[in-house]
Structures are given as C-alpha cells and as structure tokens.
Design a protein around this nucleic acid. Sequence first.
DNA 1: TTTGAAAGTGTTATAATATAACAGGATTAA
DNA 2: TTAATCCTGTTATATTATAACACTTTCAAA
Lengths: 162, 162
Amino acid sequence: MSRGISFEKHDHASCVNEALDVADQFCKAHKLQLTKVRRRVLEILLGQHKAIGAYDILAQLKAEGLGSQPPVVYRALDFLVSHNFVHKVEKLNAYVACSHSGQHHSPAFMICRMCDAVAEMQTSPKAGVFGATAREIGFEIENAVIEAEGICPSCQKDDAAQ
Amino acid sequence: MSRGISFEKHDHASCVNEALDVADQFCKAHKLQLTKVRRRVLEILLGQHKAIGAYDILAQLKAEGLGSQPPVVYRALDFLVSHNFVHKVEKLNAYVACSHSGQHHSPAFMICRMCDAVAEMQTSPKAGVFGATAREIGFEIENAVIEAEGICPSCQKDDAAQ
DNA sequence: TTTGAAAGTGTTATAATATAACAGGATTAA
DNA sequence: TTAATCCTGTTATATTATAACACTTTCAAA
Ligand SMILES: [Zn+2]
Ligand SMILES: [Zn+2]
Ligand SMILES: [Zn+2]
Ligand SMILES: [Zn+2]
C-alpha cells in the first residue's frame, strides 16, 4: 500500500505536471481523446489534493469560457473517472484527482475534516477481514468504497499548538 | 464480525419486530422520543433489507397521511441515523435499517447490484492494513465509510442457473 | 397544575447534485 | 470525402437535501 502523499510536503508543481504527462501518454497509447475540457478539469483537480464539487469545477470552466452547463463538467468527470484519472469521493459528492493515474486500482481515501485534504492509498478489498467475511457468506466483491474521515497529521499539530 | 444476515433466509417478521422492540426500549432508556413519524420511517426501512431513498420513504408517509414534505422525512432520518437505528449508504444516497440497533458500531455494507439487497457487518476501521497505514502517516480515523458493491449469493445462483 | 423551555412538526421556498434528450461540430478511419 | 463515431452546447428536468419560520407537543420545574 502506498503512502498518503498528499499529507506530506512535496514538490506540488512537478506532482501536477507528472500526472498530466502520464494522462497525456496514457490517452495517446489507448487512443483516448484527452480534450481541452477534460484536460482542464483534470488540471483543476490536480491543483489541490482536495475533493472538489462538480459545480465548483464548472464555475472555473465558466470563468475561462470553457463550457457553462452542468453536462459539460459531468461528462468530463465521467471520462476521467472511468479511466481512473479521477475518483469520486462518495461521502462528499465531490471529485479528487488520482494519485496513481492510469493504472487500474482500488483507491481508499483519508479525508481531513478540518482542512479538507484528501489522501489516496491503494487497497485490496478482497483481502483482510472484510474480504474474508465476504467470501464466507458468498458475496462477490466487484468494487469497494473506502473512505475514512478524521484529522490529518498537520491539523493535529495545529490543534495541539493551541 | 457478524454475518451478513440479510442475505440469508430468516424469519423476517420477527427480525422486524425485534428491531422495533430494541428501538422502543433504547429510546425509553435514553429518554429519546421515538415519535410516530420516526417509528414509522424505521419500520418502513426495516421492511426490506435494502437501502431506500428519502423520497421513496416520503412517498409512503404521504400515502399514510404522516407528513408530506421533505423535511419531515429528513428529520426522522437524522434522528434515526444519529442514534444508529439507521445508516446512510453513501454510494446510493439511500438509507438502510441497522442490523445491530442501539449499539455504537462501525458498519460496513455489501450491496448487491442485481437485487439491491444490502447486508451490514461490523468492522474495526482502525484495524487491518488500512488502520496501520493511517497510523503510519499520522492520520486519526474518526469514522469510515466502507461499502462493497457486487453480487450476493442468491443472485450468483440465479445467474449460474441460466 | 400551570407554565415555560425544549423538542418536534408543518410548510414554503430554495440549494446542491445529477441526468435526459437532441442538435450540431470535430475527429477518425475507411 | 464521406460516413461513423465521438465530443460539445444547450435546454429542460430529475434527484437529493437544507434553510427558515410559524406552530404544536412534550416534559419538567415551580
Ligand atoms: Zn501534489
Ligand atoms: Zn487537515
Ligand atoms: Zn430480516
Ligand atoms: Zn442480490
């Protein structure tokens, strides 16, 4: 399982650029069209390690003259989600850029309720006690939503400093 | 961890009655008002081991003359959820009666995408690999959404029978 | 047993999230 | 270059959820 990188200090500019590069290459390789709108939505989401609502994204697109109606952003999100460039955080009805773009994987999230930061990590839903119980009762897991809410390391420090 | 009882054949009438009894007793003991609307919403949810949307519940209440506007059902759901008689299934934006009423616990769900049945089981979010990783990166888990989608045993059988 | 505070309900209005449907434009592959 | 496919623009509407305020019920203190 990978680390929750978004909670750690890192070179975010190159974090964004690398992810965009990966997306460009993946789409080229798989003959997918990473169009202007789609690429821009991904870029907006990559801008922050937070989950952003569809209508907030839409507001940005609008300001940039890149489409003004809900279907525009929802279609872009559908594309990005279906190819795993972006995930939906069900608990927030909001969307977050993937930290492991292009690969099929089962994400899990840790959501800070103070600063709204979201860290993604990888899971194996069929492993562990949960998977064992599923097998035991004969339930075939196809995909899993795993989202923990709590407080991130940096907000814990801030809290303690008071 | 308890079994996914809703996927198993069981005496559902007594399953409902027991849950209502537990709720009655819990509310009495904790001086909570399990009012007509609240009790009826719980009963409707207990009727099926499925997640039901707020507006579907509202439609039933309406038909029974028990309140006709959204806030009525959302307030009842707020009460029932806050006391753990009911859980929200985030993936479905829908609500399901708890199978372990009255006790504080961390539910996890298995949702059949064919018949919509929902089975609840108990988890310890802080245990396992996920919890370990959270501790490692210093994230304090307060609560977790764990919802697996897939196919329940009975739908698998039906499928195979084709 | 009044009476006042707290909790619950009824209702109107509106916010927030998401999709259906169809016309038109761009891209791709014959 | 043409047909098929995919993408976008737009209107309209569906679905889920909450704010705000008036009124009623419940409960407990006086
Ligand atoms: Zn970054
Ligand atoms: Zn934080
Ligand atoms: Zn039952
Ligand atoms: Zn099923």
